[in-house]
Nucleic acid binder design. Sequence first.
DNA 1: CCAGGCCCTGTACCAAAGGGCAATAACCGG
DNA 2: CCGGTTATTGCCCTTTGGTACAGGGCCTGG
Lengths: 204, 204
Amino acid sequence: MQILISHRQSVPTPWRKAFPDGMKVNGPTQPQVAESRIIWLDLSRLKVAQRQLWLQQALDHQRPLVVMSPTPSDDEALQMLKLGARAYCHSLAALNQLEQIAQVLSHGGFWVGTGFMQRLMGLVASDEGPGSLPAGHPFLSLTGREQSVAKAVARGGSNREIAQSLQIAERTVKAHLSSAFIKLGVRDRVQLALLINSLALQPA
Amino acid sequence: MQILISHRQSVPTPWRKAFPDGMKVNGPTQPQVAESRIIWLDLSRLKVAQRQLWLQQALDHQRPLVVMSPTPSDDEALQMLKLGARAYCHSLAALNQLEQIAQVLSHGGFWVGTGFMQRLMGLVASDEGPGSLPAGHPFLSLTGREQSVAKAVARGGSNREIAQSLQIAERTVKAHLSSAFIKLGVRDRVQLALLINSLALQPA
DNA sequence: CCAGGCCCTGTACCAAAGGGCAATAACCGG
DNA sequence: CCGGTTATTGCCCTTTGGTACAGGGCCTGG
């Protein structure tokens, strides 16, 4: 069953058609909300200050949340998704879009509009070419074994675990790590892990 | 009709079940590809050098393109999506995931895995204010001081440095950290750093 | 007022990480 | 065959990290 939280007087037609047995409630704290498989939060007629509160309360039910905005924007989408929403669309989104969103969210996915997705891609893709690793990146200066060990550290492994998984002595792991620290100019395994994990997906 | 471009000898079972009338071809230049509504490109058994070429050729058909990788990674996903793919999934993705992808792409959308999406969100969210964490994020269960210390660790700081910057004893830093480890269910500072930076922890 | 949370710190101890020194071994181009 | 790189490991040491135990003070809601 679908629950729509909205301040509108009536349920938008597309939504009613998509979910004939859906129910509209007037606030995120209504008891029926807990029954919902997916929660639809309509921001129409909501003051800005109230949006945040309702969103939080809606999220507290631990259900996939769709935010519907009467005036969608990329920035608002980003904000809502950051706060925990799983989808963001227009308050009057078309029938088949609503169905698709329900489908995707019921399987644990995210849904965002094409335009927003493209902007997202643009943000993270901006500084790189086709190859995922910058040509002269220091990580490539590591030897094969050093890279193996470094990657394992970047996944949170301890020296002992790495030694076992690579079938070598713990001392050898330390040796490779020491060498990697020097080559990459870092101090310890934490900095190494951070460095390696920001390789291909640089935020800024 | 669905077209799968693949070097495999046989069509993966999930794909065959999802698209019983789908057809497999051995390369992106086969004439049948032009007939497809969605093009599925399987990278299995393809040399790295060949991937790029095939992808470009497949994209030339001006159809939504799904890239299927035998060894998916966030980095590869980003690369493929940047080049123009509309979806990225495992070569042996489950039946219902394939159906969902077809659904979304046929309506002009993008499809990416939940993990990748979350990482993408994390990246673009990183330059925003601190009050932007997903609701229910374990990080929020930390007390104020614990959060400060944890953030410093996530930037690669040592206990001594953190103590100095927060003007407290090193012992206190350790206390906050121990508490954070328990609350977040991690073992040490490396895993803490990875968790806070929204990176996946892999056991092996 | 008191319980309980948060913040702070001390002593002590143990485990893990990191590094210096040294050695063996495989491999590879000249 | 030799020098250079890589991979491996041992012994031993220091530093750092993490925890156990034991408090202190501050503040807030019941």
